[in-house]
């Protein structure tokens, strides 16, 4: 393809992007004014998170796969760094909620066999389809035809998963979920988690050095 033709196509793409941005702002304003503010905020956050995920090229599947296949740990280290940031941010939010006497936000699930079993099934799917949940959605938007098949399986699997959910929850109902800050205190829990993550970071850095 000639450069000129390529440029012209790029211009068309820019106009299309502008139309979509204006349309998104319109949806935000509509949700904000006539439906519910929470929905409008969710819409805005969804767009921002999607944009960052797409532009940063972060791939959770690759972050966990590339160290073993190729010895590349750049994505894993990015993931560990973002987990450190999330840890600090969530600790702050949860701490404020506890001070205010509010229920603590977050997903609390007790440890058990359901985690390795679920992770194995998810990992099989991610390896075959070439992407985890967010990766599949991003590539769908980027225009990969393969992901259209994946999204059908994704929806079917999710539906079947929620159909089976009562069976899985029944396995773990009797156990109590662990919240480290309540067990160790906020300072200790935070320090433990961050030190552990930093060690993982160093380990992956060393692994890449060892492989190349």
């Amino acid at each position: 393809m000639k450069r000129q033709e390529f440029r012209q196509k790029s211009n068309w793409q820019l106009i299309f992007a502008l139309i979509i941005i204006i349309f998104s702002i319109y949806i935000y304003l509509y949700l904000n004014n006539s439906v519910e503010i929470n929905l409008a905020t969710s819409w805005a956050f969804g767009l921002i998170v999607g944009f960052i995920l797409q532009r940063s090229r972060i791939c959770f599947t690759a972050a966990l796969r590339d160290p073993f296949l190729f010895g590349l740990t750049k994505l894993s280290r990015a993931l560990i760094l973002s987990t450190i940031i999330i840890t600090i941010g969530f600790a702050y939010i949860q701490y404020q909620q506890q001070l205010g006497g509010l229920p603590i936000e977050g997903k609390f699930v007790p440890l058990g066999w359901h985690i390795p079993i679920g992770a194995f099934i998810f990992g099989l799917g991610a390896a075959v389809s070439g992407g985890c949940a967010s990766g599949t959605l991003i590539r769908l938007g980027e225009g990969y035809k393969l992901q259209w098949i994946v999204i059908v399986g994704f929806i079917a699997g999710s539906v079947h998963g929620s159909y089976d959910a009562s069976f899985w929850y029944q396995l773990i109902r009797s156990q109590k979920s662990t919240h480290l800050p309540q067990l160790l205190g906020w300072g200790n829990a935070l320090a433990l988690q961050i030190i552990f993550l930093l060690l993982l970071y160093l380990l992956s850095y060393w692994w890449e050095k060892h492989k190349f």
Partner: peptide, 17 residues
């Protein structure tokens, strides 16, 4: 190729080599 992930993957791997 037409996969964006490999577009970052392959050059990174090759430059490391």
């Amino acid at each position: 190729l037409d996969h964006t992930c490999s577009m970052t993957n392959i050059p990174e791997w090759a430059r490391k080599k």
